[in-house]
Amino acid sequence: MSNDLMKGKVAVVTGAGRGVGREIAICLAAEGASVIVNDLGASLQGEGVDMSPAQEVVQAIEAAGGKAVANGDSVAEYSGAENMVAAALETFGRIDAVVHSAGILRDSIFHKLEPDQFEAVLRVHLFGAFNISRAAAPHFRNQNSGAIVHMTSTSGLIGSVGQANYAAAKMGIVGLSRSVALDMQRFNVRSNCIAPHAFSRMIESIPGKTPEEQEREMEKRRTRTRADQIAPLAAFLCSDAAEGISGQIFGARGNEVYLYSQPRPIRTLHRDDGWTVAKLAETLPGALRASFTPLERTRDVFPWEAI
């Protein structure tokens, strides 16, 4: 543990038992942070409880000379988020950053998507983002500092087939993070999003290709888009080195880091006498069609290989 951008600080990382969350927790610890490693150890569908993944991450951090404590509460419940923050305060005396990386999938083509599948995904991703941010907010306000990092996704920012619930949650997180950034800026609290590209259980589970095609794709992602390549950006955004950076959406893929645009008006139509349906039908398609955002998928927007 030779780096110190997070020295003396305490961070809570949800979903830190595996994948991106695991690597973020380890990276934060390597930068000097004490870490609450939160993970239910559930399946991708949110089923079952197994504390061993979180405990293994704690052991790895401690073996490298860092400090960490495992936590098995559910971020989908506000009381669970409160328990995580309480664990940070009781064990390490403060809280300086939260990273919400926990997630589940219930993929389904939209006309077959069940209400419980929609709600379950929103509860972990979007409600979880609110729960952990809100639980930490009073402490951040009182100490006049704090950093929040949320995981969004290109499934929401750009689009993916069969993931309406996941996309809705991830776009909701963007709006939540922006609002937190605006509301909390007076207290020196920052909130940002990362859209990660990394091999993980979630990526591995997405259907749509033959087993052979999927295995070839997975092998490329295992080596070129690794979870440990996401972690430095998250740790940086938690640190004081990111002072003044808030309300932004970043991406990380392989060795690439990029900044996403955010919705702003791009074209305007005006009539002094106002608009009717007929006038819109006559004017709008021809005037605006060239500026429409295409119905692209993530793979259409990122056609180049990560290196």
Rank of each mutant, 00 (worst) to 15 (best):
D4V: 01
D4Y: 13
L5S: 14
K7T: 10
G8E: 08
G8A: 09
K9Y: 08
V10Q: 08
A11M: 12
V12K: 00
T14Q: 04
G17W: 00
R18D: 00
E23G: 04
C27S: 10
L28W: 10
A33L: 14
V35C: 11
V35R: 07
N38M: 04
A42M: 04
G46E: 11
V49Q: 09
D50G: 01
D50Y: 04
S52E: 15
V57H: 03
Q59D: 14
E62Q: 15
A63R: 07
A64R: 13
K67Q: 15
K67M: 08
K67C: 10
N71S: 15
D73M: 07
Y78T: 00
S79G: 03
A81E: 02
V85G: 01
A87K: 15
T91P: 00
R94M: 09
R94K: 12
H100L: 05
R106D: 05
D107S: 11
F118V: 00
F118A: 00
V121K: 03
V121F: 05
R123Q: 15
N131F: 05
A135N: 02
N142T: 11
S145Y: 07
S145Q: 13
G146L: 07
A147G: 11
V149T: 05
V149P: 04
S155E: 09
G156V: 07
S160V: 07
V161M: 10
G162P: 06
Y166P: 05
A167H: 11
A168Y: 03
G172V: 03
G175L: 09
S177R: 04
R178N: 12
R178M: 10
R186E: 15
V189N: 06
M202N: 01
I203P: 00
I203E: 09
I203M: 11
I206A: 03
G208D: 08
Q214D: 12
R216C: 01
M218F: 11
M218N: 15
E219H: 04
T223F: 05
T225I: 08
R226I: 02
D228E: 15
A235M: 09
D240K: 13
G247Y: 08
A252S: 15
V257E: 04
L259S: 07
L269H: 03
D272K: 12
G274R: 02
G274L: 02
W275E: 09
A278P: 01
A281H: 08
E282K: 12
E282W: 05
T283A: 09
A290E: 10
L295C: 03
E296T: 13
E296W: 05
T298P: 00
P303Y: 08
A306S: 13
